[in-house]
Simulated scan of single mutants.
Amino acid sequence: MKKTFAVAALAAAMIPAAAFGQARDQIRIVGSSTVFPFSTAVAEAFGRQGKFKTPVVESTGTGGGMRLFCAGVGTGHPDMTNASRPMTKSEFESCNKNGVTDITEVKIGFDGIVIADKIGSAKMNLSRKDIYLALAEKVPMNGGLAENPYKTWAQVNPNLPNTKIEVIGPPPTSGTRDAFIELVMDYGCKDFPEIKAITDAKVKTAACSKIREDGAYIEAGENDNLIIQKLNTSPEALGIFGYSFLDQNKDKVQGSQIEGFDSTFE
């Protein structure tokens, strides 16, 4: 059964070829919250043509979308899933196991990840090492790994403000979070001697990628607009989301600098 998969931070989409020939008269799309606004706009334009019903688009997160997409074929399953990262090997195997065997990936664009706060707040200049130390569940300390003791940014780096670490971001099902782990957390942890000394690949991956669950990192669900809203009521908090949401909300939020670089389209 052929399906199509659309990938945006890398952005993409997937679809089953025979799905549209079956009983349902309306296309169903699931997946990435980052791609959701773009998918919705395209779906509405498609519906305005009048020949077919407007497709139903649900924001389930990349991981959640993949699970729904790979669960099977037919009218009980979505026709397309959007993603902000490529399909993983285990997801591909799950698709094949459930009869979703002919998958087409359509690359539809690129996006970036930003860390931002409420407009008017003192702009932060963070390194990826700072972010790792602030958000990791366990951090390098005295030759080993210890439960993260840092409560303020100044404890992480004395050049940063003495404000509470409070970061609002996506849940584990999010492709944006997957990309954040790879681009920020994994990079930020790699030069610590305690990390280099770990020989077990799985233990090393967990040490770099496991995010703390003591309240410093707050999961906002699969809704980037909710992160924007929360930042406006929490002036010292930072949010993690796709660049497109920063671009669309420049009157509300501002991007932090990462290693001296501003968040720009380029």
Rank of each mutant, 00 (worst) to 15 (best):
45 A>F: 05
256 S>F: 03
230 K>M: 14
57 V>Q: 06
71 A>T: 03
34 T>H: 12
174 S>G: 02
135 L>F: 06
99 G>A: 11
47 G>F: 09
14 M>I: 13
10 L>N: 12
184 V>D: 02
32 S>M: 06
56 V>D: 10
175 G>C: 02
175 G>K: 10
75 T>C: 08
263 S>A: 14
180 F>H: 09
151 K>F: 09
37 P>V: 05
34 T>F: 06
74 G>T: 03
217 Y>T: 15
236 E>T: 13
185 M>K: 04
149 P>E: 07
229 Q>E: 15
35 V>E: 01
222 E>P: 07
222 E>S: 07
151 K>I: 14
30 V>N: 05
248 Q>Y: 06
118 K>Y: 02
102 D>Q: 10
67 R>P: 05
74 G>C: 08
112 G>R: 13
40 T>S: 06
132 Y>D: 06
214 D>E: 05
29 I>L: 11
7 V>L: 13
200 D>I: 02
243 Y>F: 13
64 G>C: 00
39 S>L: 15
127 S>V: 08
180 F>P: 07
196 K>N: 07
250 K>H: 13
209 S>L: 01
151 K>R: 15
247 D>A: 08
130 D>V: 11
68 L>D: 09
157 N>S: 14
47 G>I: 06
204 K>E: 07
134 A>W: 07
157 N>F: 09
135 L>I: 11
217 Y>R: 05
188 G>F: 08
53 K>L: 11
74 G>Y: 06
221 G>P: 04
52 F>V: 10
200 D>T: 10
97 K>E: 02
89 K>Q: 12
239 G>K: 08
197 A>Y: 00
14 M>K: 07
11 A>P: 06
244 S>C: 04
234 S>L: 11
62 T>M: 05
63 G>T: 00
119 I>C: 01
187 Y>A: 03
54 T>A: 05
33 S>A: 15
230 K>D: 08
76 G>D: 13
88 T>V: 12
140 P>Y: 12
188 G>W: 12
172 P>E: 09
185 M>G: 01
230 K>W: 04
